[in-house]
Every structure is written in structure tokens, then in C-alpha cells.
């Protein structure tokens, strides 16, 4: 079971790098959906089949795999843009920073003492790496949609980390987290729609008039 878990986690890291590197919006959303799908499998693999984990996996799959990507695709269609404009610091530097962040995540998680049964699992480093990637996308991308995607990956990172503590996280709070994620993204899409209607473009360069 562990080897499959490790494989999935490594796949998640690869997807991270792909996201950092790719410029086409549609493929980014599909990758995020795919990553969401993988993550929703994790609880089943990590903690076996129990009512709690089943429900958690299905809700996660529903939200991360289907609902949110559908919302984002709808947003793209209304705005009919396909291509992410050159990020603030260029693709190659973003990738370099992405690798540095992942290395940093691994070093940092190395210093955190894990309890015996978790000592082998890669949850903590992968979680932190995905988190750092999400942060990097938020910082470097111009388009509002890609920033929303960055926020999604950021949430995925936390979700991975949450896997360690499934028995601590009662059901109600878990669903609360996912629900808030959904509402957050929903409001973001509405706003993106407004931004597009107002500025007739999705990048956030002209969203800088509020300054000192």
C-alpha cells in the first residue's frame, strides 16, 4: 500500500512542476482537476475503507475533481481567453524557484520529528512543496484565473497535510474546510467575471490603481 502512496505523492509533485511550467490555461485547469482526483484517493489509501474516509474521499473528489474545474472552465468560456500571458518573472525562473521551494520543503520537514508510523510517509514534504508551489503561482502569475488556480493548489497542499490527522479532524470540520474552499472559489469566479466585464481583460496589471 505504501509504495502506491509514494507513487501518487511523487505524481503530485510532478504535476506541480507541470503547472508551474505550462502556459495554457485549459491544460492547467485539467491538471489541477487531475491532482484533485489523486488527492481524493489518498484518504482511502492512507487509512483504509471506513465510513468517514469514504465520505471524505467522495466529497473531495466531487469538489476538487468536478465542481471547481467546471466553474473555472465556465469562467474561461465567458472570457474566451486561452493563453496565460508571460508570468512576472518568466517561466524558467518560476521553475527554478519551484525546485528550490520543494527542496526547502523537504529540508524543513526533515527537521520536524514524525511519530513512528508516519516516519516513512512523504505527506509532510509533499504537502509543503505543493503549498509552496501554490504560493509561487499566486506571486508570479498575472491572470486572475491562474491566481485562483494557485490558491487551489495551495489548498491541495494543506489537504495533503491533513491526511496525517484524519482521526483528529472530525467529519464536520473537514467538510467545513471543503465547503469554505468551494464558496471561496465560487466568489472568486464571480469577481473574475466582474473584473473581466470591467477591465475587459483578466490580467491584474491594471488592478494597481489603489496605492499610496
Amino acid at each position: 500500500m505504501d509504495t502506491l502512496l509514494h507513487l501518487l505523492l511523487l505524481l503530485v509533485i510532478l504535476l506541480n512542476f507541470f503547472l508551474l511550467g505550462s502556459s495554457r490555461l485549459a491544460s492547467c485547469i485539467r491538471t489541477t482537476a487531475f491532482q484533485g482526483g489523486i488527492l481524493s484517493l489518498l484518504p482511502l489509501l492512507a487509512h483504509g475503507f471506513s465510513g468517514h474516509t469514504l465520505f471524505l474521499a467522495s466529497v473531495a473528489f466531487l469538489l476538487k475533481g468536478i465542481a471547481i474545474p467546471y466553474l473555472l472552465f465556465r469562467a474561461i468560456r465567458q472570457v474566451h481567453i486561452r493563453r496565460e500571458v508571460e508570468p512576472l518573472i518568466g517561466y524558467v525562473p518560476t521553475l527554478i524557484l519551484g525546485t528550490l521551494a520543494t527542496a526547502g520543503a523537504f529540508i524543513f520537514s526533515g527537521r520536524l520529528p514524525l511519530i513512528p508510523e508516519h516516519s516513512q510517509s512523504l505527506f509532510v514534504p509533499v504537502g509543503l512543496a505543493t503549498l509552496a508551489t501554490g504560493f509561487l503561482m499566486l506571486i508570479s502569475r498575472r491572470k486572475a484565473i491562474t491566481q485562483a488556480l494557485g490558491y487551489l493548489i495551495f489548498e491541495n497542499g494543506i489537504f495533503i497535510f491533513g491526511m496525517l490527522l484524519t482521526e483528529a479532524m472530525p467529519l464536520m470540520v473537514e467538510s467545513g474546510v471543503l465547503l469554505d474552499l468551494l464558496v471561496g472559489v465560487f466568489v472568486m469566479t464571480i469577481l473574475m467575471h466582474q473584473i473581466n466585464r470591467e477591465f475587459s481583460t483578466m490580467n491584474t496589471d491594471n488592478l494597481t490603481s489603489l496605492k499610496e
Partner: peptide, 11 residues
Amino acid sequence: RLQSGNLHIYM
């Protein structure tokens, strides 16, 4: 000028 107005810097 620290409050430069663009979100990336805030992030």
C-alpha cells in the same frame, strides 16, 4: 511606495 498597489508584491 511600499504600498505599491499590485497584489503580487503583497503576496
